[in-house]
Amino acid sequence: MKIAGLSIARGGAPVLEGVSFELTPGRALILRGPNGCGKTTLLRTIAGLQPPLAGTITGAEEDIAYAAHSDGIKLTLTVGENLTFWAEIFAAGSIEPALDAFDLRGLLDRPAGALSAGQKRRLGLARLLVTGRRYWILDEPTVSLDRASVQQFAGVVERHLADGGAALIATHIDLGLEGETLDVSQFKAKLPDLEEFDEAFL
């Protein structure tokens, strides 16, 4: 996946410009930067949820799995039903590996509403495994996970990388993953000249 000259906006104002990097299979890229610098917006743009102002994202069409703060878990459905649903939507086969990887087998028939925040998060991350997609775009995946679960998650990501996957992760904690770090704040958008302040009101 190749990102070239990407400019993105949040709420009508440009936040990042000229973002360029490459994400190759088998590698992880960790995004860093202070709060509000545009990490989430960048990830949403790469996931295809919002159009960029400029620039291109190539090489990962229909091969991206996105996970953010909310996991799309239905509280009245059981853990198994939630996972099976996403497996069917992505037409990617069995939920068994995902259950094992995140240690959810014991919770299979528990309604998701009865899970703790950390367990819900594990269920949300397990969804990544049933998508069968190569590029994982993860926004703060370790929120509300305890230390053991973080280790577990890092292990899952490592196995995904070893299987030829790739991950783009915005996080503040050290996952102990091998991979480059990219500081997003270097791409901070400069304000356009007041003279060019015409068509787009930016």
Binding site: G11, G12, A13, L191, F197, F201, L202
Partner: peptide, 12 residues
């Protein structure tokens, strides 16, 4: 619209 944009610049 322009005032809104100018205020946004200030904040940025």
């Amino acid at each position: 619209r322009r005032i809104r944009a100018l205020m946004m610049r200030e904040r940025m």
